[in-house]
């Protein structure tokens, strides 16, 4: 049994998600109940394989490979929840591409030769990682809501038939989804960033580390979030501009996610006896 489970690869769940996405696209064009069932089965199978992969291989979420796969997993859960609860909405058509992009990044763009090991003795490092990962989930959800918002706003701007085409959530609902995602992500990111700065100062204070893409990207992301919150709550900027900014924040998130971790190329701190967890 464990041998079978250990054979589950990124191709298994990547293909399942891809097929689920294609089925959902077909359902958007020809809305037939069996297609929904098939899509859910494929998506569910993908999530199962994805979960098995993470449990068996245990790629460290602190590294780019494990981080993108962990983020993809959270979004896959989000996709399946939404697909079940928003049966009339074209939910999967928007969420699954993001999951596929993340899985694709993990497979094709990120080295699996992880030199950063998960060290259970470094609890604060783990807390930092979890905080940043959760913030990334918030940004991703905000990005999905923003893409949907822009499409819905475009349909309204062009005065398309309100009951034609993809069935989507209202502008108000999408704006609220984006707002909540950003509101939750910002404090998490702030806490994660501060904690990361403390850890960096304490253990890896070399100047190069402070100017690594990962650190600069995360600081940039925090700044974008701050601007986003200012524009929303102080300047009352229309939703479309906020949506574009959230998508930009997501781009920055991806860049920081795949960037090499400043701790990765340094010698382990004394006492670090962690083992490699590369898949």
């Amino acid at each position: 049994m464990s041998d079978t489970l250990s054979r589950v690869s990124t191709t298994c769940f990547g293909l399942s998600y891809l097929l689920a996405f294609l089925v959902e696209l077909a359902r958007a064009r020809w809305p037939r109940p069996p297609l929904r069932t098939v899509g859910l089965i494929l998506g569910g199978a993908g999530l199962f394989a994805h979960t098995v992969f993470l449990v068996v291989r245990q790629p460290t979420p602190a590294a780019a490979y494990g981080g993108t796969l962990a983020l993809a997993w959270v979004l896959a859960v989000f996709y399946l929840y939404g697909a079940v609860h928003h049966r009339r909405q074209a939910w999967a058509v928007f969420v699954l591409p993001l999951v596929l992009v993340l899985v694709g990044l993990a497979v094709f763009a990120v080295s699996t030769d992880v030199s950063l090991a998960f060290d259970p003795t470094r609890v604060w490092g783990a807390v930092h990682g979890v905080l940043v990962l959760l913030a990334a989930v918030g940004v991703s959800v905000g990005c999905i809501a923003s893409v949907m918002y822009l499409i819905q706003a475009r349909r309204l701007r062009l005065k398309r038939n309100p009951l034609g085409g993809l069935t989507m959530l209202s502008l108000e609902r999408l704006e609220a989804m984006n707002r909540r995602a950003v509101n939750v992500a910002f404090p998490l990111l702030t806490a994660g960033l501060l904690l990361g700065a403390v850890l960096l100062r304490q253990y890896h204070a070399a100047a190069d580390n402070w100017f690594s893409l990962k650190v600069l990207g995360t600081v940039g992301l925090w700044a974008v979030f701050a601007v986003l919150l200012y524009l929303r709550y102080a300047a009352h900027v229309p939703g479309r501009r906020l949506a574009w900014l959230t998508i930009a924040a997501f781009g920055l998130t991806l860049a920081t996610l795949v960037a090499a971790h400043p701790f990765a190329n340094e010698p382990r701190p004394p006492g670090s006896g962690a083992t490699e967890a590369s898949p």
């Binding site: 309204l156 309100p162 009951l163 034609g164 989507m168 209202s170 502008l171 108000e172 609902r173 609220a176």
Partner: peptide
């Protein structure tokens, strides 16, 4: 029977594309 054909109903359909509650 798909869609609405009275002007009032279409107007409300548009409103529902913008507002949720």
């Amino acid at each position: 029977a798909r869609g609405h054909v009275s002007v009032s109903s279409v107007a409300v359909d548009y409103v529902r594309q913008v507002f949720d509650h």
